[in-house]
């Protein structure tokens, strides 16, 4: 019983969950959105500072939630810095596959946004065995794309 759970709650995730990176509200964010997971009531606000060249200069978040949603937000905000909007969206697509597709093959992916990032995010792939928890892992990402699109609220529903 504990094996799959250990796969889900890897040390890296527990560490990000306990000590989330970029858990703050940046002064100069020019995009933000609130994301809501209606199943558990978790709410995250994602802040982005996007330059005129479309490059994300800063990414951060505030909010409370389960270990998975907080760890995911923490890791996402880390990898987003320096990406263009297009790269960020492309990365979400791959990340979504990674969280949902059993046959997802990291080596077969060429996303142009740096395979290193996906490799880092791979620790979250454990949610595949827990379909009810996929939304926890993707909440921050949904919220990020809402922020980029200029919507101020989104939901995993």
């Amino acid at each position: 019983m504990l094996d799959e759970l250990r796969e889900l709650y890897q040390e890296v995730i527990l560490d990000h969950g306990r000590n989330p990176r970029n858990h703050r509200r940046p002064e100069d964010a020019n995009r933000h959105a609130r994301g809501n997971n209606p199943i558990c009531g978790d709410t995250l606000v994602v802040y982005l500072d996007v330059g005129d060249d479309g490059v994300i200069r800063d990414a951060a978040f505030e909010g409370q939630g389960c270990a998975i949603s907080i760890a995911s937000a923490s890791m996402m905000t880390d990898v987003l810095k320096g990406k263009t909007e297009a790269q960020a969206r492309a990365l979400f697509e791959k990340f979504h596959d990674l969280c949902t597709k059993d046959d997802f093959d990291l080596d077969a992916v060429d996303n142009g946004a740096g395979d290193d990032d996906l490799e880092r995010l791979q620790v979250l792939a454990g949610v595949r065995a827990f379909p009810m928890r996929v939304k926890c892992a993707t909440l921050a990402w949904h919220t990020m794309t809402a922020a980029m699109s200029g919507e101020d609220a989104t939901s995993t529903e």
Binding site: M1, L2, L5, L8, C40, G65, C66, A67, R133, C136
Partner: peptide
């Protein structure tokens, strides 16, 4: 103290 309700639910479900 250290675990969110959602994580508790997932863990006990496996039992």
């Amino acid at each position: 103290e250290n675990a969110h309700a959602h994580d508790i639910g997932t863990i006990v479900d496996r039992a």
